[in-house]
Every structure is written in structure tokens, then in C-alpha cells.
Design a protein around this nucleic acid. Structure first.
Length: 643
DNA sequence: CGGCCCGCATAT
DNA sequence: ATATGCGGGCCG
């Protein structure tokens, strides 16, 4: 690869010495003079004007409109951009197409040669990895991208290498690069971030700073629960969680396997005991340290605690009846309340349990010593008792008079329960007769096959259907958070990406992005609007009427103090950036829409709403925008021809 | 022992 | 940002 880069660069340098066209100002780059238009020829393919007398060989064609410049006519010696034979053949084909006018031919050919063939491809699926965004020098995605005034992007290093070779023109479109740009190139940070995010999105990895879901980073936590200074006076009750030792995500279903237990490499086994809920939490068996149910209403419940908090609970070891949460007045400083004062409903955690019932997910169960009425509860501490399935759920009148949600849990673990002397784990067993089902309301039974079920051949419980995909990241404990989800949350990634494409003036996602030589990005309209009515030169006069010499108007970049007056004379849209914006703005949300994953990105809910509204704009007018770009290109060509 | 009531973790 | 929660040490 390196040799290829070098050969291309060398080739460019070599080529520059021999034959050069006119720059956009009409100045011949070979003799440095500005020939009258009668003394120039414009290439029919790339529409670049050349100084007639500086051409290496006189034109053979009798008509200006059919002349092809040395770069375009010599197929065996490709132009510096080194287009493939396929591209050159495509250009040839365009010219052989009799259905096109000369203007259309030039336009089409220019598109192909400028590497903008993606404009004519499937607009719904522009892909920054298809090569169209590559730096024209190294053919890789731009690293530390530099955007030059003609709107083309290169790696900083490639750009500098080219400059050091003596090239002062865009390797893509031959536009002359202003001195300031090549002496002090500025990185386009917004583009850099966009490319980084796009790469991250493709590899399915989390992007941006590591995400943590704890107030204190897990790796910074001590091995045991601790007490903040402020909470010390009230004791361990106010403890903060210690380190989470296991590497399962918080929404992991089922047993915690050995591979997620780097500390002991044995996983959480049935019968494991902890001193209290905080310690139990650290091993991932049941994460909430007060609540009895771990779950998410639209997703499912992962675990429950039996701690004697609800009088309706009924524990038979291998099966038990569990009561939902809520229905209690927790006003004031209460965290719990034994008094049921209103009806429970299937919402929040109760709905999460019902979802696990419908799907047949395994639910981890821990029993606490606080459950005094159960023979199966431990004498002290908290114990992991394995996974259960919720076979049915319903509502009934609770002992305290209000309606409660009820769940029939039946054990389905491969390990024997702590209270049995059996060596083997559970086998499918008939459901117990539940008397209270008579008179129950809102009865829910599973309709489909359960996700977690017994395999008769393998003689064990296993996932018959793939477990639900985790929607959270896991804190591995070494400072790096790992995204468990394989597929990316396209919607939120796109939103974040588009945030990085905000105009420095209107703060909205850019329309027709323009990159200044100082590396700042604005909507074309915003930038032009900012300097509306200001001419390049300004007449000066004092109150007294004494006129002064005309002075150049200074036009400061809205994001920094750089004078961009010269750049504003002919600002070019950064088309690669535009395509990037459009591809992300347009891309439909590909994943199951009923699971919108909204709660997935709670860490950046600051402006996401207005942004979400704004991003719809570019996609609405995507085609118009593209047309405008093409027209803009044409105008550019006309401008050059006139000169 | 029961009541108090704190910080926290998490869902929404 | 706000609401919820089957903890838990201490005080009386």
C-alpha cells in the first residue's frame, strides 16, 4: 500500500512539471499568465480550461467542444487522481451517448471523475465505506480530515505530503489551494467525529466516552458496600454499592455463568449466600437493593427477592406465589410500607413480571432471612435459589383488601434447590392447583412455547428460543464499558452523529455544509446570510466627506476570528459531508420499532428532542439538495468557461 | 422490637 | 427530572 501511495504521489509531482491547466482564476499554472478566453481550450471531459500556447501538443480537434485535455485523453497515463479504467471507460461511454447534450455529458463526466458517482447511486443507501469518501491520495477514509476550499477532504498527512511534494492543487478537482491553507491546514473536527462514529456504528461497538450506568464508576468502587461521609451518621443503611463482580449486563436473564465471573470463574451457584442485599447485588443475582423486582415493563423481569414484604406471598419451595409491588403509600421518607392502601395493577415492575410470564423467561430468585413465614428462607442473609418460570399471573383481592397482582413461580433450574437432597435439578412438573384462581381476574397464561424450557434429549433446561437481546452495557470493572448489544441502536447513534453535524450558526443539522479553511462548518445559507450585503471591497468615507482608499472587507469566521473573506468569494459545499449527513438523516430505523430503546440513552437526553425534530429536515428535501448541488457544480463550470 | 428515615439504584 | 422501592442501622 505504501508503495502505491508513493507512486501516486511521485506520479503527481512528475505530472505537474510537464503539463498544467489554468487555475480557477483563469491563470495558467505553467506560464503564470492569464490568457484571454480565445487563447484557452476547455476540456470536454473535465471542463478545465488550458492555456493554448502552453499545451504540450497542439489540439487535433477542429472544434473546441470536442477537445480533451492531456489528463483526460491519455488513457494509458491516468490523471493524478488515478481513476480506474472503469471510470475512464464510463466517461467514454457518456460521450458516446447520443441522447445527451454536450452540457449533460460534461456534467455527467464531471460527476464520475470527481468521485461523486455516489450521487447517482441509490440515494437511500450511501455508504461511507464504499470508497466514495476515501481520501483521494491514500484511498482510505480520511484520518484527521482536512477540508480544502473546493470542498474536498484529505487526510492531514496525505495533504501535507502532497504539499511537500510541491503540489498546490486539490488532488481531486485541481483547484488551487490557497497558501494559508497549506501552510496551516486545519482539521475538520466535525467530520473526524462523524467518520469515527460511522466506523463505530459499523463495527457495532459503543462510541464516544465509555458509558457507565452507576453514579460511581464500577472500577472505582471498593469491594464492599461503603458509606458516604454524609451518610455515615445513619450507618450502613445509606450504603453505596460496592463493585459489581460479574460481567453480565443489568438486564441479563437466567443463571450467571462462570464466564461472567472473572473473579472466581465459577458463576453464581444455587445456594450462594450473602450477608445482605447489597452484597447479593454485587454478584448480580438481584441488583436492586430495596426493590423486590428487577425488570423493565416492556422487556421482562430478570429477578425477584422473597423477603417477607408482602403478606400474600406463599412459599412452597419448588413453587411459590408472589405478590406484585405497589399499592402502598410511600409518601414522606418511607421506602417501604406494610399497609396496602390501593389496588395494584399490571404496570411497571408488575408488567415486567407479566412479560417474563408470557415469554417463559427464567427469573432468578433470591430468598432473604427476612421472610420469616417461609420454611425455605435462610436463617441469615440472602441466598440464591436458582431460576423459576412464571407460569401464570392474575389479580385477586389481597389479604389487606386491595387488589394485588399475583404470580405463580415454578422452579426450573439445572441445579438442585438448596433444601433438597436431590443431586439433580428440576424436571418439568405439573402445575399445582391454585385455589385462589377461582375468582381471580386478568388471568394471563403463556400462549407460545417458553423461551427457557426443558430439553428431553439433553436432560437439562436451556434457552429454546434465543434470550432477549440485552439493551444495556456491562461494566467490566476494568474501566472499559462493553456494549453487550450486537446490533447498534441506529436511531440514537444517528441522532448523536447528526448532532456532530450542527451548523456553527443555526446549531441545526447542516444543510449544504461548507467547511471554512479554518476548519469550521456552516450551512451554506447561514454563512452567506452572515455576510449578506457585504462586498469584498468596501468604500470608505468619513463624516467630513473625505474619501479614503477602498479597503478590503474583513469577514471573520463566525466560529473563530479568522478572516475568511477570500474563501467566501467562492465557497464550495463539502459534498462528502453532505452525503454523510443525508445518509444518516435518511436511514430508516432498522430495528424492531415496538422496542424503541428510548431508555437506552438516558445519559444524553439534554437536547435530543429538538434535535430529533430537526434531523427530519434534510431528509425531506434530500433530492432537492442533491439537485442544487449538481446545479452548483454546473454554475461552477460556467464560471470557469467564462473566464 | 417497631418505627424512623436516610442515600441510593433504577425505571420511566 | 421525578417517582418508586420486600434495606438497614439506630433510637427509644
Amino acid at each position: 500500500m505504501k508503495t502505491l501511495i508513493f507512486s501516486v504521489v511521485e506520479f503527481i509531482a512528475e505530472k505537474e512539471m510537464a503539463q498544467l491547466p489554468c487555475d480557477p482564476d483563469g491563470v495558467c499554472m505553467r506560464c503564470k499568465e492569464k490568457p484571454p478566453s480565445s487563447q484557452t481550450l476547455t476540456c470536454r471531459t473535465c471542463a478545465t480550461p488550458w492555456h493554448l500556447s502552453c499545451l504540450p501538443e497542439p489540439p487535433v480537434s477542429d472544434s473546441d467542444t470536442h477537445w480533451e485535455c492531456p489528463d483526460c485523453s491519455d488513457l494509458s497515463n491516468p490523471v493524478p487522481v488515478a481513476p480506474s479504467d472503469a471510470i475512464l471507460l464510463a466517461v467514454r461511454d457518456i460521450h458516446l451517448d447520443t441522447s445527451l447534450s454536450e452540457q449533460q455529458k460534461a456534467k455527467k463526466a464531471q460527476e464520475v471523475l470527481a468521485g461523486s458517482s455516489h450521487l447517482s447511486k441509490d440515494k437511500n443507501a450511501p455508504d461511507i465505506f464504499d470508497g466514495s469518501f476515501n481520501c483521494s491520495i491514500c484511498m482510505q477514509l480520511p484520518d484527521r480530515p482536512v477540508t480544502i476550499p473546493c470542498g474536498h477532504n484529505f487526510c492531514l498527512k496525505c495533504f501535507e505530503k502532497c504539499i511537500n511534494q510541491g503540489t498546490r492543487k486539490c488532488a481531486n478537482c485541481r483547484t488551487v489551494i490557497p497558501a494559508k491553507m497549506y501552510t496551516q491546514p486545519k482539521i475538520n473536527y466535525q467530520l473526524a467525529m462523524a467518520i469515527r462514529l460511522a466506523k463505530a456504528a459499523r463495527s457495532g461497538q459503543s462510541s464516544g466516552p465509555p458509558r457507565v450506568h452507576h453514579f460511581v464508576r464500577n472500577q472505582d468502587r471498593p469491594d464492599t458496600a461503603f458509606t458516604t461521609d454524609r451518610a455515615k451518621k445513619t450507618g450502613k443503611a445509606n450504603a453505596c454499592s460496592g463493585k459489581i463482580f460479574v460481567t453480565v449486563p443489568p438486564d441479563h436473564f437466567g443463571p450467571i455463568p462462570a464466564e461472567n465471573d472473572p473473579k472466581r470463574n465459577r458463576g453464581v451457584l444455587v445456594g450462594d449466600m450473602w450477608e445482605d442485599r447489597m452484597e447479593c447485588r454485587q454478584w448480580g443475582a438481584h441488583l436492586p437493593h430495596v426493590a423486590g423486582i428487577a425488570g423493565q415493563s416492556s422487556y421482562g423481569a430478570q429477578s425477584v427477592a422473597l423477603s417477607g414484604g408482602y403478606v400474600d406471598d406463599e412459599d412452597h419451595g419448588e413453587w411459590f406465589l408472589y405478590t406484585g409491588s405497589g399499592g402502598r403509600d410511600l409518601s414522606g421518607n418511607k421506602r417501604t410500607n406494610k399497609i396496602q392502601s390501593f389496588d395494584q395493577r399490571f404496570e411497571n415492575m408488575n408488567e415486567a413480571l407479566r412479560q417474563s410470564c408470557r415469554m417463559g423467561y427464567p427469573v432468578r430468585v433470591v430468598r432473604s432471612h427476612k421472610e420469616k413465614r417461609s420454611a425455605y428462607a435462610p436463617e441469615a442473609g440472602v441466598r440464591y435459589d436458582g431460576v423459576y418460570r412464571i407460569e401464570k399471573c392474575w389479580r385477586k383481592d389481597g389479604i389487606q383488601g386491595c387488589k394485588v397482582c399475583r404470580y405463580l413461580f415454578v422452579r426450573c433450574d439445572n441445579e438442585a434447590a438448596p433444601w433438597t437432597s436431590d443431586e439433580s435439578g428440576d424436571r418439568p412438573r405439573p402445575l399445582p392447583e391454585i385455589e385462589e384462581l377461582i375468582g381471580a381476574i386478568d388471568i394471563t397464561e403463556r400462549k407460545d412455547d417458553p423461551s427457557w424450557d426443558y430439553d428431553e434429549e439433553k436432560e437439562c433446561w436451556l434457552w429454546k428460543k434465543p434470550p432477549p437481546e440485552s439493551r444495556k452495557s456491562v461494566d467490566s470493572g476494568d474501566g472499559s464499558t462493553v456494549r453487550v448489544k450486537r446490533k447498534l441502536n441506529i436511531a440514537s447513534e444517528r441522532e448523536k452523529l447528526l448532532k456532530g453535524f450542527r451548523c456553527g450558526i443555526c446549531r441545526k443539522v447542516m444543510q449544504l455544509p461548507i467547511t471554512t479553511p479554518c476548519g469550521h462548518n456552516f450551512c451554506k445559507a447561514c454563512l452567506e446570510g452572515a455576510f449578506a450585503g457585504q462586498s469584498l471591497m468596501r468604500e470608505r468615507s468619513r463624516e467630513g466627506g473625505r474619501s479614503l482608499r477602498a479597503q478590503k472587507n474583513v469577514k471573520k469566521c463566525p466560529s473563530c476570528s479568522n478572516d475568511i473573506a477570500d474563501f467566501l468569494e467562492n465557497p464550495q459545499v463539502n459534498r462528502e459531508m453532505l452525503t454523510l449527513i443525508e445518509s444518516w438523516g435518511k436511514k430508516p430505523v432498522e430495528e424492531n420499532p415496538e422496542e424503541s430503546d428510548e431508555n437506552d440513552e438516558n445519559d444524553d437526553n439534554d437536547e435530543s428532542l429538538d434535535d430529533a425534530a430537526e434531523v427530519s429536515k434534510p431528509s425531506d428535501s434530500a433530492d432537492n439538495v442533491l439537485e442544487e448541488i449538481k446545479d452548483n457544480d454546473l454554475n461552477q463550470q460556467h464560471k470557469r468557461r467564462k473566464e
